[in-house]
Amino acid sequence: MTETVNGVAFLALAFATIGGAVMMLATRNVVHAAFWLLEVLIATAGLYLLLSAEFLALVQVLVYAGSVTVLVIFTVMITLRRREDAVRPFEPGWGGAIMAALFGGSITFAIAQFTSKMPAGTFPEKTPDVAAFGEKLFTTWMVPFEIASLVLLVALVGAVWWSGGDGQ
């Protein structure tokens, strides 16, 4: 019973993720693309939820869907002079084609090369709760966590400096 439900949910979410990504690239409207991005991010959160990674799914929705996408849409809307500018013509070029081919090739190569060598993961008996996750994060993974926050701090200070402040 649970197997079937999970299977159906996985198929639906996988279709939503990949289909949304394709639609995001295919649509000619920048604002629509941003909303497709939102759909992809939420579907990905659903995939995390299927793996019982409750906290990761929530943070994915809160940070990526709730904040990053809002920021993207906000920026798109602010930089559009006129409403009609949202629709861009399709301009294929050799540069783009070569980039796409290179990227696609390297990803295909990487998947073919490395996935067979990786051991299949085992699903833990009981998924750890948020408290256990926090403990792990602040003991075993303390240094990477601090480095990540330092990088973010540098980015934050840089953004404030870049935008000029009050004097200019």
Partner: peptide, 16 residues
């Protein structure tokens, strides 16, 4: 288990 975070997450989608 993370009900508080969940509620805030749901509310954060409304402005979109």
């Amino acid at each position: 288990d993370s009900g508080l975070l969940y509620t805030f997450t749901a509310l954060s989608l409304v402005p979109l």
